[in-house]
């Protein structure tokens, strides 16, 4: 337990040092999406009774949870490859579980901050949704999935450049294809099937349904939980591979 607290606390202290820059960075992309897709083009698109901004905001929450949680991989890699701080953890008498849990929770915390920034940014646009327990459960599961994936990838890559490639080939495509900007159910069946393989699609579905007050699908939550546990297990078993 002491190792988990130390790892998490260290990340939080660093986050505190960088808080203003981090918050500003977290605000830029969502603000651009809200202005361009939501505000400027939003009147051209409607989903029944709802504006495109109401459709878009849950998608942005899902996307930000993913990107901010996954960004912990960059911090881990900088600590590992540039500052060699990872060695301090390896030389300490802590288990892999403490390390992975600490970093995963740090990624989730950072992602929740990003979600908070988006919800605040949405207020001036007049978008207020239902932020009940099912909404927050879906957000937490989304954060858990991608923070766990981030820790696993950070342990498996051999350089910081590899990490950037993973972001380009996995995270960025998923951000656009995972039901964030458009409804997946309007696509052909085979495309829908393919996109349902992406955890972000389930996160978008769950976050959108819960925040718009629609019935939620339990399967989305179950998929996120199972994928998150699988990534966490992968991270746990990848820590030893980070040693020579």
């Amino acid at each position: 337990m002491h190792g988990f607290v130390a790892i998490y606390l260290r990340e939080m202290l660093i986050l505190k040092c960088r808080l203003k820059r981090q918050l500003a960075g977290m605000a830029v992309s969502p603000l651009l999406y809200l202005v361009t897709f939501g505000y400027a083009m939003g009147d051209l698109i409607r989903f029944g009774e709802q504006s495109y901004l109401h459709f878009l905001l849950p998608g942005l929450v899902a996307m930000a949870s993913m990107t901010q949680a996954f960004a912990i991989a960059t911090d881990i890699n900088v600590a590992r490859f540039y500052w060699n701080i990872f060695e301090e953890f390896q030389a300490a008498p802590i288990g892999n579980l403490a390390y992975v849990a600490g970093e995963t929770l740090a990624g989730m915390t950072r992602a929740l901050l990003g979600v908070g920034v988006i919800l605040l940014l949405a207020l001036p646009f007049g978008v207020v949704l239902h932020y009940g327990p099912l909404f927050w459960l879906a957000v937490l599961l989304d954060c858990f999935v991608f923070a766990s994936l981030a820790v696993a990838m950070a342990m498996l890559v051999k350089s910081h450049a590899d990490q950037s490639l993973l972001t380009s080939f996995i995270i960025t495509p998923m951000a656009f294809l995972g039901g964030t900007f458009f409804p997946v159910d309007k696509l052909p069946a085979w495309v829908q099937a393919a996109l349902h393989c992406l955890p972000l699609t389930h996160a978008s579905n769950a976050i959108r349904a819960s925040s718009l007050g629609r019935p939620v699908a339990g399967i989305d939550y179950l998929v996120l939980l199972l994928v998150g546990l699988a990534f966490f297990w992968l991270a746990l078993h990848s820590v030893n591979r980070a040693r020579d």
């Binding site: 002491h2 606390l9 202290l13 660093i14 060699n84 701080i85 301090e88």
Partner: peptide, 21 residues
Amino acid sequence: VNLDSELTVRQNLDIHGRLFG
């Protein structure tokens, strides 16, 4: 050098102490 450069001297020592319980 593998210290946390953004943290203070005290914080670096404290995190190490926590890692060792």
